[in-house]
Design a protein around this nucleic acid. Structure first.
Length: 582
RNA sequence: GAUUUCGUAGCUCAGCUGGUAGAGCAAUACACUUUUAAUGUAUGGGUCCCGGGUUCGAAUCCCGGCGAAAUCACCA
């Protein structure tokens, strides 16, 4: 591995610290008393009460910047809750003649990114910033890689300006730890995501529903239209699929007698990736017995409204250019009404041929395999969905698109299903669950037929699920909410990668350069490897193309140029032996 | 999967019609006892993503690859 100048330097500093008896990676715990923000609040109280005794605290965190001014210095310490300024003064840290703790350890051997613990008392600088006057500090972890340095300032009106923001998307996603260190708003996004999940959990627990876990490895995948990931179990010698949904398992639990079950489930779909799609994503699915989809709409709008209030203190959330208001009640319209509203065409009474003609007139690309349901869905997708910015329930979907939903109680050809659309995207999907095992079998069979015709996303027939239904599942309302999608809206994130800590990426390319060990195998001492690399020989092949004379010459002159005084020049014979080594 | 754009120092980015690789921050050295994008002076730091081609000469032009982003298609 080729180390940069700064990395080499930090390794040297580590050694110097050890030489001074300072362990750069100490084992013992560090008992801090406050987080930065708490300390600041306490200091404000302390000021208000006009206390005499100084307010002493112990903090721990990462050094994010230095402003050194001779025998006094300022630094920024960042901990989980924020930042606080530190003030170091030489003669406080080093009351005796020996000033090396300040002059060497602090000024020379600490770096941006190092993690330290500090003791001291709080005060306010002349410029009014609450600051810790450090009386004692301890290195807790040395950082061997330099961090991106992001600088912040305030403009005249007090708005924060960021300079040199660490913004390269690829590096941010691949090295999320760095992103989290230097971009505080990223830490905040993920806190919001967790709070969002917690609100849901609290809400559903309060209703008495049971949080459960169901298999991720499934012999049959089902519950959604999607292509799965396939894997293999060695002992059982069988194919298993990573779940694409947990619907069929949760409904088995309703058959088993629980009134309400839910699961935050990681699902896996072997499909394209985009800023709305990651191969693994999180959904909450909820099933409640003795309810229907009308009831479920009330639950969704109440629960999501609570999320908005919890995260933003209000029902309105800014997303891109739009202010989205989650206040109940949300608008409700049937799919036919939505299409009529946005296209002016009433398709509710049309047969397949009329629908096809209408779809074509409306600019939908059609083909012969598309049935009534698909045509309606396409029209809706093209002309309605992206226009629905405020949260809206779209109800009553064509039966062909919904093989697990119950037929509508009064509208033939439709099912009791709704989606909530928000910011032009679906955020949830729900229906009165199909519990008639005969009907369910027929729906599965028509899915199997689609599969035979080449639809890779068609569902498979799950005999055990049908057997469960035959024992009787009460009327049940079911719901799925995409946690990632909802998090994007609630955190105003443009890409799903911004709400996943570790979004799926292609592997980083491995440069097949020769390693130190490869050179050692030729008999080359490790100390010569940096020189060889500096000369531009990255592979053994390139290295061996040299003649002994030239290589010896180059090595000696580069050694001099690199000022490696403690590395002796190799002898001509040594160099010859490397090149002749097979 | 298709199209477009991008890949240069630890970070953010310049680099024109091809001619020895640049800035700011970070680093190193010196100065500076309440600064805050601290400041001043000096110094070091590069596989210009990888591989071919054209050319006397390629970070730059061409071809191929790898990686990323945006848009589209499928999907949540």
């Amino acid at each position: 591995m080729q180390l940069s100048e700064q990395e080499l330097l930090r390794r040297q500093k580590c050694q110097e610290l050890r030489n001074m008896g300072i362990e750069p990676f100490p084992a013992e715990l560090f008992p801090f008393t406050h987080h930065s923000q708490v300390a600041k609040h306490e200091f404000e109280k302390w000021e208000a009460q006009k206390e005499e005794n100084p307010l002493k605290v112990v903090l721990a965190g990462r050094l994010m910047s230095f402003r050194i001014q001779g025998s006094a210095s300022f630094a920024e310490l960042q901990d989980e809750k924020g930042r606080i300024q530190l003030y170091f003064r030489r003669d406080d840290l080093c009351p005796t003649e020996d000033k090396s703790l300040y002059n060497n350890v602090f000024k020379k051997l600490l770096d941006i990114g190092d993690i330290v613990g500090v003791h001291g008392h709080l005060f306010r600088t002349q410029l009014g910033e609450i600051t810790l006057h450090v009386t004692q500090f301890k290195l807790l972890t040395k950082a061997l890689k330099p961090l991106p340095v992001v600088k912040e300032a305030k403009d005249d009106s007090g708005n924060a300006i960021t300079y040199d923001a660490f913004s390269d998307a690829e590096t941010r996603y691949r090295q999320r730890y760095v992103d989290l260190i230097v971009n505080p708003h990223v830490r905040e996004v993920f806190r919001k995501r967790t709070r969002l999940v917690n609100v849901m959990r609290r809400y559903l627990d309060a209703l008495g529903y049971l949080e459960v876990e169901t298999p991720i490895l499934q012999p049959l995948y089902g519950g959604a239209a999607a292509r799965p990931f396939k894997t293999h179990h060695n002992t059982l010698d069988m194919t298993l699929y990573l779940r694409i949904a947990n619907e069929l398992y949760l409904k088995r639990l309703i058959v088993g007698g629980y009134d309400g079950v839910y699961e935050f489930s990681k699902d896996f779909r072997n499909e394209g990736m985009s800023r709305f799609h990651n191969p693994e994503f999180t959904q909450i699915e909820l099933y409640v017995a003795y309810k229907d989809y009308e009831w479920m709409m009330d639950l969704v709008e109440e629960m999501v409204e609570q999320i908005a209030i919890e995260l933003h203190g209000q029902t309105t959330v800014r997303v891109g250019q739009n202010d989205i208001n989650f206040a109940r009640p949300w608008k409700r319209m049937t799919m036919f009404e939505a299409i009529q509203h946005y296209t002016g065409v009433d398709i509710s009474q049309m047969n397949e041929e009329q629908l096809r003609t209408t779809a074509q007139k409306l600019g939908v690309e059609t083909d012969a395999t598309m049935g009534k349901g698909k045509l309606i869905d396409e029209i809706f997708g093209l002309h309605c969905e992206h226009l629905l910015i405020q949260p809206t329930f779209i109800t009553d979907y064509p039966v062909e698109m919904s093989p697990l939903a119950k037929k509508h109680r009064s509208k033939p050809g439709l099912v009791e299903r709704f989606e909530a659309i928000c910011n032009g995207k679906e955020i949830c999907n729900s229906f009165s669950e199909l519990n008639d095992p005969i009907d369910q079998r027929e729906r599965f069979e028509s899915q199997v037929e689609l599969g035979m015709r080449g639809d890779e996303e068609a569902m498979t027939l799950d005999e055990d699920f049908l057997r469960a239904l035959e024992y009787g599942m009460p009327p049940t309302a079911g719901l799925g909410i995409g946690i990632d999608r909802l998090s994007m809206i609630m955190t105003n994130s443009a890409s799903i990668q911004d709400v996943l800590f570790f979004p799926q990426m292609r592997p980083e390319k491995k440069v097949h350069n020769a390693t130190v060990a490869d050179f050692k195998a030729l008999g080359v001492a490790e100390m010569y490897v940096p020189i060889i690399q500096k000369l531009g020989f990255w592979t053994i092949e390139d290295f061996k193309k040299n003649t002994a004379n030239k290589l010896h010459n180059d090595l000696c002159s580069m050694r001099k140029k690199m000022k490696l005084e403690n590395v002796p020049n190799p002898t001509q014979e040594e160099v010859e032996s490397w090149l002749s080594h097979s």
